Computed example of a mutant assay.
Amino acid sequence: MPGAAPVPAPAPAKKSKLRKLLRVAGLIVVAVVVKLGIGYVFDAPVRAEAGDCVRVTGEENDPEVETKGCDDEGANYKVVKVVENTFDVNACTVGEAALAQQWDADKFVLCLGPVGN
């Protein structure tokens, strides 16, 4: 037919299906990383050093710990010492609070004293 526009060829269906499959696979990977990765990172114990100040809140059997500056009003303990490779809270001196921590194979006890010391 004279004057009729040529009909464009249809797009290949394989590329469309492959893209959709890759997109779904990517979303699944992202979902798994978010589910496992973020929880793993945010549940990590505080790795403070002697001299650092921390804020300890929450229940005794499930405390939440975050590092703070020693001049920060939120700091309620100062790390006196860190005892590596143990959960023995008796490793701390009498009068110090003890907080056992574990992340993977890394275990340690934070011995805590008043911020003013």
Rank of each mutant, 00 (worst) to 15 (best):
R55K: 14
K17W: 15
P2Q: 11
Q102L: 00
K20I: 11
P63N: 03
L110N: 01
V89C: 01
V33M: 13
L110V: 04
R23W: 10
A100F: 06
G37V: 04
G95N: 00
M1S: 12
P114I: 02
P114T: 13
L18S: 02
C111A: 04
P2E: 11
E66D: 14
E73Y: 08
Y77E: 10
G113E: 02
L21C: 06
G69R: 10
D43W: 06
L110Y: 03
V32W: 11
V33A: 14
P114W: 00
N61K: 13
L99A: 03
V30F: 15
P2T: 04
G26Q: 07
N85H: 11
E59F: 09
A25D: 08
E49S: 15
L110W: 02
Q101A: 10
V79H: 08
D52N: 14
T67Y: 00
L18R: 07
E84K: 15
V80G: 00
V89S: 07
A48P: 00
V94F: 12
T86A: 09
G3D: 09
K81W: 04
V33T: 07
V56E: 06
A4P: 05
D52Y: 06
P10F: 13
A48R: 05
G95S: 01
E64V: 12
D104H: 09
A91R: 12
K20H: 05
V32K: 08
T93K: 12
G37Y: 06
A105R: 12
V32I: 15
L36R: 09
V32A: 14
K35M: 12
S16F: 07
G37I: 04
A105E: 10
A44V: 04
D72I: 01
V7L: 12
V32Y: 12
V115T: 13
V54R: 03
E84I: 01
D71Q: 09
V46S: 13
F87R: 13
N61I: 10
V115P: 07
N85P: 00
R55T: 08
A75Q: 07
K20T: 14
P10E: 06
V7K: 14
A75S: 10
L36Q: 10
D106V: 08
R23Y: 03
V29Q: 02
K107S: 04
V34M: 11
